[in-house]
Amino acid sequence: MEKDVPVILVMGACGVGKSTIARGLADRLSARFIEADDFHPADNKALMARGVPLTDDNRWAWLDAIAAEAQARPGLSVLACSALRRVYRDRLRLTCRPMPIIHLAADGDLLKARVAARQDHYMPPSLVQSQLDTLEPPAADELACILPAFDTPDAIVAQATDFITRHLDRALIPAPAKD
């Protein structure tokens, strides 16, 4: 059996700033950053580029590839991944444990504006609503913190760092870097 690996999940719909916040949190905690978008197969990216929402069947191999990447190297990782449904987070938890969650939340108008402003990204603004419709916020039994995505990245990273250092076993993370 594979060994569990600690992963901090930064989740939410497209445009909430997952990558920015996860990178900042990884830097602050001296952890490895994993960008889930890098593991989408070309077929998934092509579907999304055409405005077609992914199905569960499109996501299983993608989630398994992300977990394998986390498993590949020891130590704490911070993962930027939509992980919109509980079953997706549960799939990651098969090997990514503990997995505290930073859930970034924002309204559809802000997310559509952010996605529309992106350059060279496959995700069109038309998919924002389908992501919000699919989103299952973390349940009470998931160790999660919900943060507003409209705050500054520095403020969000600071709040996320505080949550993580209060809730993740200190043996798993180094002391946060000083600003």
Rank of each mutant, 00 (worst) to 15 (best):
K178Y: 15
K45Y: 07
R23M: 05
P148I: 06
D27C: 09
C145V: 10
A113T: 10
P125F: 12
P100H: 13
L143F: 09
V87F: 11
A26N: 03
D56R: 02
G12C: 02
S82H: 06
C145Q: 08
R85E: 05
A116K: 01
Y122R: 04
D107K: 15
M48K: 04
T165H: 10
F150P: 13
Q131M: 03
D133P: 04
S19V: 07
P138A: 00
A80K: 10
A139T: 11
A42N: 10
K18I: 02
P137R: 15
L29N: 00
L54M: 07
D57F: 03
H167E: 14
G24V: 06
P176A: 08
A140K: 13
R89H: 08
A22S: 05
R166W: 15
I34N: 04
D90E: 04
D151P: 07
Q159D: 14
D179S: 14
D151G: 14
L63F: 01
H103Q: 09
L172S: 01
L104K: 09
V115F: 05
D169E: 09
V10F: 14
R32W: 00
R23I: 02
I34R: 06
P74L: 09
A139R: 05
P74H: 14
T55K: 07
P138E: 03
I21L: 15
G17D: 13
R85M: 08
V7I: 01
H103F: 12
A171W: 05
F33I: 04
S30N: 14
A42K: 07
I66W: 01
D109Q: 15
A49H: 02
K178E: 15
D37A: 01
A67I: 00
G24I: 11
A42V: 06
V78I: 01
L111C: 03
K178S: 15
C14I: 02
L143Q: 11
A139N: 13
D154S: 15
A155I: 09
